[in-house]
Write a protein that binds this DNA or RNA. Structure first.
Lengths: 236, 236
DNA sequence: CGCTCTATTGATAAACCTCAAATACAGTGG
DNA sequence: CCACTGTATTTGAGGTTTATCAATAGAGCG
């Protein structure tokens, strides 16, 4: 176990810093790493599809998962991103529950999966996991409800601003030029996240680039004036 | 306890049929009824406000709560309804978590509240409660995400159709004329539920009334052709 | 009966989507 | 290194949806 933790320090770190397994001892975490099924995902691959929902709970060890939903016409909407140390398909734990979302990668990623019986056993063994899971779900419910409110009441440019700020909070890296968002974000991707079209996103970002609020180049976004963006998002 | 259960059969029924307390024995339920703080809510009253989030978990015993969110400009959006036997503000259980929504009544309602220490004690005593709560949260997360998808990708009339169908599922009563929705639904209310305006709802319902799909009269909605509504919602 | 809240309907305008065409960019294989 | 190819992005024109505003009518309630 120690060997594993030394050769793959990122795995132990991810699990150790995860909210789900918060409170567990080191040897318990090592056990988790051992019993989980490790999976490497190449870029643009699908971990599970909404038409065939996961029965396994996954934690991201490296990279990032994109959780999406498709409607009848095949239009895609981004529900959220799952970062390192975060879990998805935790509902595989619960009997009779389906959670129709699709998880895919933009860039290569590694995940650990624990199947239903294992998760149930884990929860019985460490009841804190259930409590942690409750907290995670509540945070996500709250976030989606916030975005639902925004989608209902705000217009596209403000939703785009809020989306950028959300991405910034999740994956922002400070540079001397500004805050760089460390996710490859196409116009299409941003549009799918906040419910608009890539054209509207393009026009809006062009305008903000003229204002000096952002700088963008092919899937890379740099926020040069976060303050202005916040003011715009909140007050118009 | 038996006395209480006999004089207020609806309370015991509500708790007994609740998902949250599923699996608990009768005497345990009676205990819950006893230790909870009972509250009667007149129509149009606010149980808790998003600016002052609840620290108590509430279960609806009679009537129905409306959960809403307000944005900066005071525009209201309906997150969901909490029916008899359902709970809200369950996050009061978790330390450090805030859940900024407003719970209010349209018509008079009764609720039982359990404060944070009580809920924590209950969960420790009956771990099934945490599992049940997980299931409830997952179902709600899924529902909001569905509506998020719809709001992103579908236009107003189809969202209205889907909203009516959701209300029908929750509060539909079969009559010889059709299915009556047993919630007072104004045009404004429907609009706040699916992210449009009362004018669009009014026009849409007028059109459907001409089609013979629905019949409506002052906050009362009767769905006379559910099948047509389903077809319209799914296929356009 | 009058007051207030709700609903209808029309006219207008704004936001934003759709489509088209041009340009820029990244990666690939010669 | 360069042409080639497919993907991203930009920008414009035009059209549709839907919000906004206004004016009126109806329903419920004291």
């Amino acid at each position: 176990m120690l060997f594993q933790m030394n050769t793959r320090p990122h795995i132990a770190d991810s699990i150790n810093n995860s909210v789900l397994f918060n409170g567990l001892a080191d040897n318990q975490l090592a056990e988790l790493i051992k019993i989980g099924s490790h999976k490497h995902l190449p870029p643009q691959s699908i971990l599970f599809h909404q038409d065939d929902p996961a029965t396994t709970c996954f934690m991201v060890i490296r990279g990032r998962l994109k959780l999406t939903k498709l409607n009848d016409q095949g239009q895609e909407v981004i529900i959220r991103y799952i970062d390192v140390g975060e879990v998805t398909a935790a509902m595989a734990v619960l009997k009779d529950s389906k959670y129709p979302v699709t998880a895919q990668t933009n860039e290569k990623a590694d995940v650990i999966g624990w199947d239903k019986p294992t998760m149930i056993r884990l929860i019985r063994q460490y009841p804190d996991i259930a409590i942690n899971l409750l907290g995670i779900l509540l945070a996500r419910l709250d976030e989606v409800q916030d975005r639902y409110l925004e989608l209902c009441t705000e217009q596209a440019d403000r939703r785009i601003a809020r989306s950028l700020l959300r991405f910034m909070q999740r994956a922002g890296i400070k540079t001397e030029e500004g805050i760089h968002i460390d996710i490859p974000l196409s116009r299409q991707t941003i549009a799918e996240f906040c419910g608009t079209t890539l054209f509207t996103v393009s026009r809006t970002l062009s305008a903000w680039e003229k204002n000096g609020w952002v700088k963008s180049a092919h899937k890379k976004i740099l926020i040069t004036n976060p303050h202005a963006l916040v003011l715009f998002a909140e007050a118009g």
